[in-house]
Write a protein that binds this DNA or RNA. Sequence first.
DNA 1: TCGGTGCCGGAAACCGTTTACCTGAAGACG
DNA 2: CGTCTTCAGGTAAACGGTTTCCGGCACCGA
Lengths: 337, 337
Amino acid sequence: MPRITIKEIARRSGVSKGAVSYALNNQPGVSEATRARVLKVAEELEWVPNRAARQLSAARSETFGLVLARTAKTLSEEPFYMGFVGGVESVLSDKSYALALQVVPDLADEMATYRKWAAERRVDGVIVVDLRVDDPRIPLLRKLELPAVLVGDPALADGMTCVWTDGTTAMYAAVQHVVSLGHRVIARVAGPPEHGHVWIRDEAFAAAGRRFGLDAQVVHTDFSGEEGAAATRKLIASESRPTAIIYDNDLMAVAGLSVVNELGLTSPGDVTLVAWDDSTLCRLTHPTLTAMSHNIVAYGAEVTHRLFGLLDGALPAAHLYSTPALVVRGSSGPPPA
Amino acid sequence: MPRITIKEIARRSGVSKGAVSYALNNQPGVSEATRARVLKVAEELEWVPNRAARQLSAARSETFGLVLARTAKTLSEEPFYMGFVGGVESVLSDKSYALALQVVPDLADEMATYRKWAAERRVDGVIVVDLRVDDPRIPLLRKLELPAVLVGDPALADGMTCVWTDGTTAMYAAVQHVVSLGHRVIARVAGPPEHGHVWIRDEAFAAAGRRFGLDAQVVHTDFSGEEGAAATRKLIASESRPTAIIYDNDLMAVAGLSVVNELGLTSPGDVTLVAWDDSTLCRLTHPTLTAMSHNIVAYGAEVTHRLFGLLDGALPAAHLYSTPALVVRGSSGPPPA
DNA sequence: TCGGTGCCGGAAACCGTTTACCTGAAGACG
DNA sequence: CGTCTTCAGGTAAACGGTTTCCGGCACCGA
C-alpha cells in the first residue's frame, strides 16, 4: 500500500500540489469550492502530512528543545525538573509540538547542543534553565538567532525574554516568617553560588539579615541530599547554632530534618526548618515542612506559552510568573528557650 | 548568506549531488580521489546536513519516542521516570539521537500518539513503560510495525522485545527478609492492579505468604504519597495490625514512615518498613529505609541499547536486566514482643 | 477596445538519500 | 578482430509539503 501524498490528492481533485497545500492549511489562494473538494478527498484517503517534507521548505520543525546540564542522578532526585517538563508538555501537546530533551554533563556540552540544533534547524526554539551569573549561553543564543526563553531573573537575562519568580521578595518573606517567630540566629543552606537564582537569594538573605539585625550565615552545597545533610550537621554542631534553617530546595530540607532527628533533636522544638519548591515531599515528612511554595507545572506551562509568543513575533520581555508563597507547616515554631 | 547544500558542494567539486552524498556518507560508489575532493570542499564550506531533507527519503528520523501516561504531578513525585529518562538519554546522546517525550493523561491518548508518530514517520522506535495486563498497546504497535521495546515482564510482552527485572524473585526475597526477622503478619501496599508489575508482585507476595504460612494482606493504591499514607493508617488501625509493610515504591514508603511517626509509633520498633525502587529518598529519612534497590538509570540505558539492537535487525527477545537487590537499612527490625 | 486589478491556480524550487540507470574501459571468448 | 559481459564510477530523478513566482481569466472603468 503506497503512502498517501498530496500529489495523489491533487490528482484525484484535479488540481495542483500547491493548491492542495493551500486548501489543507486554510491558506487563501483557492476558492471555497476547490477547498471543500480537496478536503473531502484528503479525508477519504486519510491523509497524514509527512513531517520531514513539511520541515523542508524552511518551515517549522514543530519541536522545542530543552537541555538539562545535570547528571541523571540529580535529575531523578530533584522533583523540580520532571514537574517542569510535565508543564512544558501540557502546552506542547495542545499544539502538537514535540519536546526534544537532551541531558548533558555540563554547560559546554549544552552549548554544543544549541550549536548543532541551530545548524540543523532541529528546533524552533529552546527553553533555558539554571541561568547562571554572566551566563555564556546568552551571547551564544543571540549569535545563533535561536529563539529562547530563559527561566530566571531579568537581572541575569541581559534583555532576552525570561520568565521569573521573585526570589528576592520570597526570601525576604521567609526570613520575616522566622523573625516573627522570634528567631535571631538563622542560616541558609544554599545551592552553588554560580547559579543565578542562588546568587539572588544569597543577596536577599544577606539584605534581610542586615535589615532585621540577625546573625545570618550561609553554607553552599551542590543541591544534593547528601550535602544538605552535611551542611545541617555542620550548622548544628557550630558554636553559633542557628535556631532556624532555610533550604534552597526540598530535598536538602528533608535531609536536614532527618539529621535533626538523628541527633536526637526535634523540629520545631530545637530548630525551625523552611524548605523551598514545596513538592509533595514536604507533606510526607513528620513534622510536615514549612515551604516556599510555587506551582512548578504551571511555571513550565507559562514558559512554553512565552516561547510560542516569541515565535509569533512578541518582543523580548521579562515576565514575572509569580512570587512563591510561604506555606507554614509543622516544622515552624519559636526558638528554644 | 545562503545555506550551504550538497548541491553547492557538487557544483564546486564538479560531480553530481548523488556522488557527493556517497562521498559524505562513506558509501561505495565513488573513487577515493573524488571522495577526498568532496570531503575537502564540504569541510571548507562548513556544510551541515539538513535533517528534514535527510529524513525525506524514508531514511531514519534519528529520534526515539517515549510516551508517559501519567499526570505531571505524579511524574514529578516519582523519582523513577526522570532517572529512567536520564538513562535513555545517556545512550541516545552518544549516537546523536534525540528523544521525543510526550506526557499524556491516559492510555487512549498514548495510543493515539503512537498512531500519529507512525503515520508521520516521526520516530524510529518507541520505549513503552508501565506495561499492563493484556496491554492494548501491544497489538497496536504490532499493527503499526513500530519498533518497540517494552519495559516489563515477558509474561506481559506477548513475544515482543522486552527488558525486565525479576519482580517475582525480588518479592520473594523481600518477604523472606521480614520472615527471617520473625514477622508473621505482614502487608503489602501496592500500586494499581492493572499495572503488570504490580500484578506480578501481587502474585509473588501471595505465593510467598502461602509458602511461609503468613497472614499476608494487600492494599491497592494509585502509587501516590497520599494513598500510601492512607493505606498505612488503615493497616495500623486494623484488627490484625501487620508488623511489617512492603511498599510498591519509595514515595509511599516515606509517607508510611511519616504516618508511623505521627501515630506515636516507631520504626522498626513497632513496624518494619520496606520500600521499592530505592531512590535517594530512602537514605534521607530517619530511620533510613530498607529498600529493594535497582539502578534505574542503567535500566533506561539498557532498554535504549535494546531498541538500537532491534533497528539493527535483532530478533524479538526477552532480556532480563537484573533482579533488584534488597538493601537492609534502619527500618528493619524484629516484630514487637 | 484597451489597460488595470484581483483572484485562482499551476510550475518549480527547496534538499539529502536512494534507486535505477548509463557510460566507457577492461577482459573473455569464439 | 569483433562482439559480449562485467564492473567501477558515476548521473538523473524521485521523494513530498510549502512557498514563491507567474500566468490566465473575469471584471471594471474609460
